[in-house]
Design a protein around this nucleic acid. Sequence first.
DNA 1: ATAAAATCTATAGAATTTATAGACTATAAG
DNA 2: CTTATAGTCTATAAATTCTATAGATTTTAT
Lengths: 142, 142
Amino acid sequence: MLSKKCKYAIHALIYLAERKDKGPVHIQEIADKQHIPKKFLEGILLELRNAKVLHSKKGKGGGYYLHKRPEDVSLVEVIRLMDGAIAMLPCVSLNYYEKCEECRDEKTCGIRDAFVDVRDETLRILSRSTLAQILKRQKELK
Amino acid sequence: MLSKKCKYAIHALIYLAERKDKGPVHIQEIADKQHIPKKFLEGILLELRNAKVLHSKKGKGGGYYLHKRPEDVSLVEVIRLMDGAIAMLPCVSLNYYEKCEECRDEKTCGIRDAFVDVRDETLRILSRSTLAQILKRQKELK
DNA sequence: ATAAAATCTATAGAATTTATAGACTATAAG
DNA sequence: CTTATAGTCTATAAATTCTATAGATTTTAT
């Protein structure tokens, strides 16, 4: 399951994607509109900024705005930043690999295959799901 | 990520699948061989028994053994029993559905689609991964 | 009767997630 | 050049979930 942090991040990003080219948006505004605790959101936006997904402007008239293009921000990227690995087992993760304590031998482990497949399918689907794609879909549904 | 509980369960089940038709196996033996804390394993096996995946026999000469056939126990079932939903969002779960607090309106939510797809692919892959299938794969790899 | 082994209830410890507080820094605007 | 605004940073608290353990009870084979 995605953490709240991750869901908050996704909603905040969609909000910012809808308002791109309209200048910086205050944390407070995002927090209010998306019902996210402001201080919690602060940390989230900061991480997204450090990852170059967002830019920020300090001082009066400041706020956050998208740095990358909406079509270049996928759910994969957001989930990895917020929650870490996409894979269901550490020993199968591409970006957060760790040896399984439980597994005696990775080479002869009969379990990994299935989880490799799940990982690959998940990555495939979540990579093509970008902010641009989500906005488009939202409009279609209205 | 799967919980330790879930990984323990999978390993215990594989161990029992390898020993099926050889009579009940003690908790202690499974715990020793799979390096699982015995008391923790107790609870896991009990849940699997309540779910009719395992049977148990009390008293001397007792222990746990498979109730279902190895080809009828899939990773989906085990994961659902131990960790709950397969889906990455509650509002997309088939067996553990819950409304998203974050979503204002499920009908016009542009995010859900991707996660429905992920869920379906994951289910497809993990359903065909049964204890029998895993044992077979293990032998091939040796 | 006795010993072996699962069952049940309760709880403790650890880790992670979620949320909050307050001081600090940068910037725009008058 | 002061003031108000808004992001940044560090620390910590509260809540929840995950992992592990303890001890008493029940069942069964011998």
